[in-house]
């Protein structure tokens, strides 16, 4: 995640997701943004906070098996650049979605709930909490 180009790719993937949703004729722009935010946050929660271990055989004698992806980033060091970046993206998406849905109450609640789902587990206080 620290490698060159990974953060840019992450942003590109989010916009590709939005583009795919937007290209479906029946989906309006507000719905597209809310769907983008929701899908991103749910995938982020699943990928970073549910899956444990690594998808390849590590040479650490199984040490990584007990940690989620998020806890393994930068070997557990908190507030690194990558962590801040991954923490900020759901929040920015929330603001964009709120703006495009003209702060409609229903959309706002949906976006808020999923944003909290993606942001709260990333707080240092939840490190290792199951």
């Amino acid at each position: 995640l620290n490698s060159r180009g990974v953060w840019l790719t992450y942003i590109i993937l989010v916009f590709v997701l939005h583009f795919i949703l937007l290209s479906i004729p029946t989906i309006t722009t507000p719905v597209a943004w809310t769907l983008t935010t929701t899908i991103h946050n749910v995938c982020s929660f699943y990928l970073f906070h549910l899956i444990k271990g690594a998808p390849w055989e590590t040479s650490d004698q199984g040490l990584a098996r007990r940690f989620t992806f998020w806890e393994q980033i930068d070997n557990g060091v908190q507030w690194t650049g990558t962590r801040k970046f991954l923490q900020i993206v759901p929040i920015v998406l929330f603001f964009i979605a709120s703006f495009y849905t003209k702060y409609d109450k229903t959309h706002f609640m949906i976006n808020m709930v999923t944003m909290l789902l993606a942001v709260i587990p990333k707080f240092p206080i939840f490190f290792g909490v199951r």
Binding site: F19, I20, L22, S23, I24, P25
Partner: peptide, 12 residues
């Protein structure tokens, strides 16, 4: 599929 729907939507 995605590109053609995108072009169609843009067109519409």
């Amino acid at each position: 599929g995605i590109l053609s729907t995108a072009i169609y939507s843009a067109f519409v």
